[in-house]
Design a protein around this nucleic acid. Sequence first.
DNA 1: AGTTTTTTGCAACGCTTGATGTAAAATAAA
DNA 2: TTTATTTTACATCAAGCGTTGCAAAAAACT
Lengths: 193, 193
Amino acid sequence: MARPRKFDEQEALQKMVQVFWRHGYDATTTRMLEEATGIGVRGIANTFGDKEDIFLRVLGVYTEMARGVIEQVFAPPRLEAAQMMFQGLAQVATDPDDITNCGCLMVNTVFELGRASVRVREAVEAYRAMWREAFYMAAIADGVAEPEERAEFLLGLLWGALSQVRLMGATTAAAPMAKIAVETIETWKRDSA
Amino acid sequence: MARPRKFDEQEALQKMVQVFWRHGYDATTTRMLEEATGIGVRGIANTFGDKEDIFLRVLGVYTEMARGVIEQVFAPPRLEAAQMMFQGLAQVATDPDDITNCGCLMVNTVFELGRASVRVREAVEAYRAMWREAFYMAAIADGVAEPEERAEFLLGLLWGALSQVRLMGATTAAAPMAKIAVETIETWKRDSA
DNA sequence: AGTTTTTTGCAACGCTTGATGTAAAATAAA
DNA sequence: TTTATTTTACATCAAGCGTTGCAAAAAACT
């Protein structure tokens, strides 16, 4: 009964994730989203709403991507998985323009919009809760003392490492931190054995 | 021979540090700087240059503030000082509007302008080098193995903790991380004894 | 008092941004 | 084929930004 859309909604969202991830919220303009998706401003606005609406959808997509990774790495939930995580952080991206060199969209977002939008803050907190839970379950499974605080510590460690990635513009910047992080977790496992 | 300034340059800079610290670079407008300093746009531009010039001066002032703290806490340079540092991070700010609840200007800046301006990136790197050096000297003094990597680790830990402060808007958010950080450093000291 | 030099206040500029109004185009149903 | 409904494409809007021009004001030196 009506004219069908010329584009795929999910595909367009994926493209927009890349743009926001690379440039951040403010630096991402309507025109950039047009170019990346091939859709006109009007089509974007009609489909997704205003800029903040789009961004929340983007954060949602990003969260689900991370959820997939977590479910894969933390199955079963062990501290060893957390160690793998940190080692993986420091892996070289062969392409200097690789999106992983931009750090983590959520970490970056905290600093740009952390206090600005309630909805964004909630999305970031949900993302953090997901990681905290993964670390917590791993700590429990390995019988470590004070699992809540250890989980919070690892979460902060992860964010610190990612902030270095963002600053240096290369995943290798996380290497020195990853090394000691793995070593620290190793002592936890030893102490609880 | 000429008309003297109505304002004090250093005093105005201090005011502008507060504004940039609280709101970040982009969100800080010329009008906000006018209101905070009591100086007109024209006076500010004549004295300090354009917005980026002002921001670099602000980063300079902030760095010197931190240098004072470091020289005080890390005299003599020991890991115990680093532990005090992390404990201090989690101290409650009685006033919810306290500027310390905004996290660290340098950490925040990385995410907003990390890749945008070479001059800003250099200023941030100088700031990081200052902290890295303090941690490194402390690690050396306490005879810890792999002092460079430990220093880098502590630097990342600090930034991770501060990012949580920024996200939650309260210094208390750093408490769980500070606790484990102090404990981890304690094991380093024990292992090197 | 006169002169010179800088600061000051006001206004306006050009630019970019996110958002919207409107009419034509396109397709599925009748 | 006609009709109804949505998507397009284009142009434009108002608002906010950093920055600058210009004349008046103010003080120090001669």
